[in-house]
Amino acid sequence: MHQTTIKNTVRCTGIGLHGGKQVELVLRPAPEDTGILFALRSGSGTSFLSPKPRLVVDTGLATSLGNGHDHVATVEHLLAAVRGLGIDNIRIEVQGRELPIMDGSAASFVYLLNQAGLRRQSKPRKVLAITKPVTFERDGKFVKATPHNGFLVDYTIQFAHPLIGRQNVSLEVTPDAFASEISKARTFGFLREVEYLHANGLALGGTLDNAVVLDEFGVLNTDGLRYPDEFVRHKLLDFVGDMAIMGLPLQGRFEVFASGHALNNSFLRHLEDNASEYLEQRVLPLPVESPAAAPAQPVRGLRGQPALA
């Protein structure tokens, strides 16, 4: 399997979840073996950051990365779209300290990446494969991983709310499955928590336009839910994005119960600390193609309308 990048540079603007201010995002093609590279632009210049588990500096409201000089927040939805669509190499330029929240899902990023197009590169894809079962558990919440030729996630959540309760979704994460089954699922929260955050100057960009908000009985959004089980699907989306912080794509079957950004990152750090026991870097074989083989087509996914700059 070949590495991939995007064909063209694309950009968008949107509101940041934390500060409530407009931020600019530019996505550019990147050479082979670059991986995911953030270019953080500020008044003092540009600094670069490649996601790694120990560069996660905050998991409160979202996943934030930092390099000691600069940081960028709310990276998980874009990283989920990048990894979900099978993109290996990309340069992500950010003007501001967070990515735009868009509609609270990964749908706008899927649309943007599809507009950029997908370009196959010459080198084979590298992955980190789970080689033996591993369980990471904390306070009854857990992530269990076993060997699997692909990326399969079986995710379960449980909330004491009449509209949520216990929900489960199991999905082999492929570009088509991610775009159609997961990418539209929005982040969610409870009204009492949103009111507290706003009163304390937090999540200033959070509105009903970019999150599903629940009171004690139901959903406050007038358009309702996009999936009957949108809540667990968004948690799976977050998991895909958080796992992308490992650098190379992970291969394995992941059973997850009630995890969040903090536990996801702790699981990755556990894998990193015990890589020789649980992980093996593999180079995927390139397909054998005839000279007349048709060129690769771009991944077809969800169509939406992000705010284009």
Rank of each mutant, 00 (worst) to 15 (best):
D33R: 11
T34F: 03
T34Y: 02
I36Y: 08
A39T: 13
L40G: 08
R41M: 09
S42N: 13
G43Y: 08
G43Q: 14
S44D: 10
G45S: 08
P53S: 12
P53E: 09
P53L: 10
V57G: 07
D58P: 09
T59H: 13
G60A: 15
G60K: 15
G60E: 12
L65M: 11
G66Q: 05
N67E: 02
N67S: 03
H69E: 10
A73M: 09
A73S: 04
A73L: 03
L79V: 12
A81C: 02
G84V: 02
G86S: 03
D88S: 09
I92T: 01
I92L: 03
V94Q: 00
Q95T: 13
G96T: 12
R97Q: 09
M102Y: 02
D103A: 14
A107D: 01
F109G: 04
V110Q: 04
Y111Q: 14
L112T: 12
L113T: 09
A116I: 01
R120F: 04
S122F: 05
V127I: 13
V127A: 12
T131M: 14
K132I: 12
P133N: 10
V134M: 05
T135E: 08
T135S: 07
F136D: 02
D139M: 14
G140I: 10
G140A: 08
K144N: 12
T146C: 13
F151N: 07
F151T: 07
L152T: 15
D154N: 15
A160G: 04
H161A: 01
P162K: 05
I164P: 05
G165S: 06
G165Q: 03
V169C: 09
P175N: 01
